[in-house]
């Protein structure tokens, strides 16, 4: 096990050797754990290895400004690692672009997931119309700020379908119909890809329980197509033995 001092020394060493131009990590700014971008040796002190930040750092890897800084180093938890693995699998990132510095303090996500499992069970037991009412109640608060999309490392489209208006695929208005189309569209695009980091739910200013949707969907895809295979890619792989029962 490395100590925090050793890890910081390692980062300084990487800077000195000019192997990296930037470190993406978390800092503790007056009690708020938030992302920090260290470009200089003297700022390495800022890095906090307390990884209780609610965001997924891998989301910054899709930004043009950050891409210019490759190769960079990132202090990662298991969530960031899974995201980066997925981005590499989907050809969005090269292995050499990001140097991973593993934080020893792994973020314990079991707590909130356990609480949510109970909620998921409750939703499954509901009738269709009850479940629909549950989502209606939640989605009517959506203001379409797209914080869920922006905080998600896997929403990396240069031009999101929700932004296209010729023709309009998703109604941009924040009414129930538009909110349903948007939230379901995003959920479908996460099918089997979501790594359940909870960044979208934490970012949502309207407190919509988005992880319920994503995790329920992960469950369905796992049941229908098997647990995700690191070599396969659910959205583009196909086999004739796949579950076809949902076709009418």
């Amino acid at each position: 096990m490395k100590t925090i001092e050793q890890q910081k020394a390692e980062i300084v060493h990487l800077f000195e050797q000019k192997k990296i131009s930037m470190v993406v990590a978390f800092e503790n700014y007056r009690g708020i754990v938030r992302p920090v971008f260290v470009k200089d040796i003297k700022d390495v002190e800022k890095i906090s290895f307390d990884m209780s930040g609610k965001q997924n750092l891998a989301t910054y890897l899709k930004r043009a400004e950050i891409k210019k800084q490759f190769p960079l180093a990132m202090v990662v938890r298991p969530t960031e690692k899974s995201s980066i693995a997925l981005l590499i699998k989907e050809n969005q990132l090269k292995v050499e672009d990001v140097l991973l510095i593993e934080s020893m303090v792994s973020q314990d996500q079991i707590e909130w997931k356990k609480a949510q499992d109970i909620e998921i069970d409750r939703l499954w037991k509901m009738s269709f119309s009850e479940r629909m009412d549950f989502w209606k109640k939640n989605f009517q608060n959506c203001i379409r700020c797209y914080a869920c999309r922006q905080s998600c490392p896997h929403c990396y489209c240069q031009y999101c379908k929700a932004d296209k208006n010729q023709p309009t695929w998703v109604e941009r208005s924040a009414h129930l119909q538009g909110n349903f189309s948007w939230n379901f569209l995003r959920a479908f695009h996460q099918a089997g890809r979501c790594i359940e980091c909870g960044a979208c739910e934490n970012a949502c200013p309207a407190n919509i329980p988005l992880m319920l949707l994503n995790r329920m969907q992960n469950k369905i895809t796992a049941e229908s197509f098997g647990e995700s295979d690191p070599k396969k890619y659910l959205l583009s792989d196909w086999s004739k033995d796949d579950d076809n029962s949902f076709f009418l």
């Binding site: 938030r34 971008f37 930004r63 700020c145 922006q150 905080s151 309009t168 538009g178 970012a203 200013p205």
Partner: peptide
């Protein structure tokens, strides 16, 4: 650029702002 490196580009700040008033017109 330096000050807003963290910004993820959502609209939470503007949508929750009581004075932000930009709007878009769409036909649906």
């Amino acid at each position: 650029n330096d000050a807003s490196m963290n910004c993820i580009g959502c609209a939470t700040c503007t949508y929750s702002c009581p004075t932000c008033h930009c709007f878009d017109i769409v036909d649906e």
